[in-house]
Measured scan of single mutants.
Amino acid sequence: MTSCHIAEEHIQKVAIFGGTHGNELTGVFLVKHWLENGAEIQRTGLEVKPFITNPRAVKKCTRYIDCDLNRIFDLENLGKKMSEDLPYEVRRAQEINHLFGPKDSEDSYDIIFDLHNTTSNMGCTLILEDSRNNFLIQMFHYIKTSLAPLPCYVYLIEHPSLKYATTRSIAKYPVGIEVGPQPQGVLRADILDQMRKMIKHALDFIHHFNEGKEFPPCAIEVYKIIEKVDYPRDENGEIAAIIHPNLQDQDWKPLHPGDPMFLTLDGKTIPLGGDCTVYPVFVNEAAYYEKKEAFAKTTKLTLNAKSIRCCLH
């Protein structure tokens, strides 16, 4: 018999989150649709729960009410004593943790798909938090293969000092899905179709896995975050240069030392320094102006996964 890495157990509980950011409308629209008619997301033997994560922000069509829901799922915020004085999103995070967690427990949901849009030209993107997770690498390989020839990129946010504390991190297997470009507060049919297909293929993978299909060893190309880059700023902290036209919409493309990065209003080009080629992502993302992030630098690498098969009882 072929030796293989056996994944822990079959997958039982899956959640699909929309509206973690209330103005990213593809996930909101799909989740609302699936709450009314969820036939397309159901798979035999699998509990799939669509869920609106930040209903107040969705109602106002804004990213958040008090603070970013997708950055506060750490033990400090989840452990705060519940009171009306807490920011709305912290209270909501505790409610979500109660419903789908608790985080880092045996009772937490197996998989959470968190649906997002970006204003950046990132196409279909899967966000991975753990480079050693054979199950998710296999799932992402399946999704990428199923979507081809449509490109699907994998963004690895594993980093020693950049801690995200994402909404989906309460699950055993957290999956971020990011599709763009799409303006905030807008629905685009092409973007919706791409996100819908990503979810379909992900659920198909889980179904095949649960039925005992063995997935042979595989490898995927990923883009691992190195650092986030702020806009150049003046002495008052105001933005002093904008994304250069040569960099705009060039997510995932190589940016070499000396290539144009920013452009000042008086026409001066600010190039990339250093001696390493990087791959920019979230270029000129609207939501990241407040976070002082013009783009993120990534490096390209390959992740390998062992063969996996479900432990059938």
Rank of each mutant, 00 (worst) to 15 (best):
S3C: 10
K13W: 04
V14L: 04
T20M: 03
T20C: 08
N23G: 06
E24N: 06
T26R: 01
V31F: 01
K32N: 10
K32G: 10
L35H: 12
A39V: 09
E40N: 02
E40C: 04
Q42P: 02
T44V: 10
F51T: 06
N54W: 04
A57I: 05
A57E: 04
V58H: 06
V58D: 05
V58I: 08
K60C: 11
C61E: 15
T62H: 15
L69G: 06
I72L: 14
K80T: 10
E84R: 11
D85A: 15
D85M: 14
A93K: 06
E95N: 12
I96Y: 05
L99H: 11
L99M: 13
P102S: 09
S105Q: 13
I111H: 01
I112P: 01
L115Y: 02
N117P: 01
M122L: 11
G123I: 02
L126C: 05
E129V: 06
D130N: 09
N134A: 11
F135P: 00
L136A: 04
H141E: 04
Y142F: 09
K144H: 05
T145P: 00
S146L: 13
L156A: 06
Y164D: 07
S169D: 10
Y173Q: 14
G176R: 15
G180D: 00
P183A: 14
G185T: 04
I191C: 06
I191L: 07
Q194H: 12
M198N: 02
K200Y: 08
H208Y: 11
P217D: 09
I225E: 11
V229I: 09
Y231P: 02
P232T: 03
N236M: 09
I239A: 07
A240K: 14
A240W: 06
A240D: 10
A241T: 04
H244K: 00
H244W: 00
P245R: 04
Q248I: 13
K253N: 12
P254V: 07
P257W: 01
M261W: 01
D266I: 03
D266L: 05
G267I: 03
K268H: 12
P271H: 09
P271Y: 06
L272W: 08
V281A: 15
V281I: 08
N284I: 01
Y288N: 13
Y288H: 13
Y289R: 12
E293Q: 09
T302S: 08
C310F: 12
C310E: 05
